[in-house]
């Protein structure tokens, strides 16, 4: 198997190129419109009819973004949290000290969460805040019960923003926890760590899971449809941890797919099928079927690292963006 994937089935010719003009740091869909998050200031909308337009949303670097198909929430080094839909954007919070908004997350019923330094905020009906024991490394809503998982040093905390009487629940594990994700069924919380490993908690019974063996810090992780697998970057292949049994990945080996010379930089799972899109350090994008490891080439290698990937909700469009400002939308329909 050569790294150029020259024999691999290709859908590269179905790509509509988009010139982002600056590093792409995130991608989301609003319906069938691909939205690229640029490293500084703007979102770039690539409409289905081919029109492209830019919307300035921050006065500086965009540090974090999250999307749920209907809106995109972003945080910047201008201290602002901005929500954007197809037509307009609106500042929903501005830090009085202009602290960086490091992380954002979207929750049920229009709720949004963000963090600045050691403070986590949730905006639902009203604004609530929580003082974490140290700088917040990542945020993730649980699917039920309006709970927010907050990753920080030496563990994570489960916080109930609407129930001030309920004490936040600490989950302890030594080290620096930098990112957080909750399985779609709400049973597992997984954090990325400063070390090249993941840490997991089975929330019922508080069991620990240590997922190690990576070559680099894991910067990207995503759940496959229904939460059967957790796909991750950080190695020269896609690492998939099995979560479809009662105990999750405990005592099990991960599945390793689509090996290549460069590392996987970013992953995004298909919204319906067990297919993972993976972006590599050499600019290649592969679509990989988990069942048999079959690969489809979505972008040729030989460019800057892939830094953003997103699927449309119907799973027919794949948006990718790269560190050098190249971007594209692949139409699989």
């Amino acid at each position: 198997m050569s790294d150029t994937r020259s024999d691999t089935v290709s859908v590269v010719e179905r790509t509509r190129a988009v010139a982002a003009g600056g590093a792409v740091v995130g991608a989301h869909f609003l319906g069938r419109t691909a939205v690229f998050v640029l490293g500084e200031e703007a979102l770039l909308f690539a409409e289905p009819d081919g029109e492209e337009r830019r919307m300035a949303v921050h006065d500086g670097a965009i540090l974090a973004s999250a999307g749920d198909g209907a809106r995109i929430v972003s945080g910047g080094d201008d201290g602002k949290v901005v929500t954007t839909d197809a037509g307009s954007s609106r500042v929903i919070a501005a830090d009085p000290k202009r602290r960086w908004i490091d992380h954002v997350a979207l929750g049920p019923d229009g709720a949004a969460a963000w963090s600045a330094g050691k403070t986590a905020f949730v905006q639902a009906k009203e604004l609530q805040q929580f003082a974490a024991p140290s700088t917040v490394g990542g945020l993730a809503f649980l699917p039920k019960g309006f709970r927010l998982a907050i990753a920080h040093y030496n563990g994570a905390t489960l916080w109930f923003p609407n129930a001030p009487q309920a004490a936040p629940e600490p989950l302890e594990w030594k080290g620096s926890h930098l990112g957080a994700t909750v399985s779609p069924d709400g049973r597992f919380l997984v954090t990325t760590m400063q070390e090249p490993m993941l840490h997991g908690w089975r929330l019922a019974g508080r069991q620990h899971m240590r997922m190690a063996g990576y070559a680099a810090r894991v910067m990207s992780l995503d759940w496959t449809a229904g939460g059967r697998w957790l796909a991750t970057s950080g190695a020269t292949q896609i690492i998939l941890w099995p979560f479809h049994t009662k105990d999750g990945p405990m005592g099990k080996q991960p599945r390793l797919l689509a090996p290549a010379e460069p590392r996987v930089e970013i992953v995004a799972c298909h919204p319906q099928q067990d297919i993972v899109a993976a972006g590599y350090g050499d600019g290649m994008v592969l679509l990989v079927r988990i069942e048999d490891g079959a690969e489809i080439l979505a972008k040729k290698p030989g460019d800057a690292p892939v830094s953003a990937l997103a699927w449309s909700a119907d799973g027919l469009l794949l948006a990718w963006g790269a560190e050098d400002g190249a971007a594209g939308v692949v139409d699989l329909g």
Binding site: G117, K118, N154
Partner: peptide
């Protein structure tokens, strides 16, 4: 914030 922590 000068937050120092030990590696695992």
């Amino acid at each position: 914030d000068e937050e120092v922590f030990e590696m695992n």
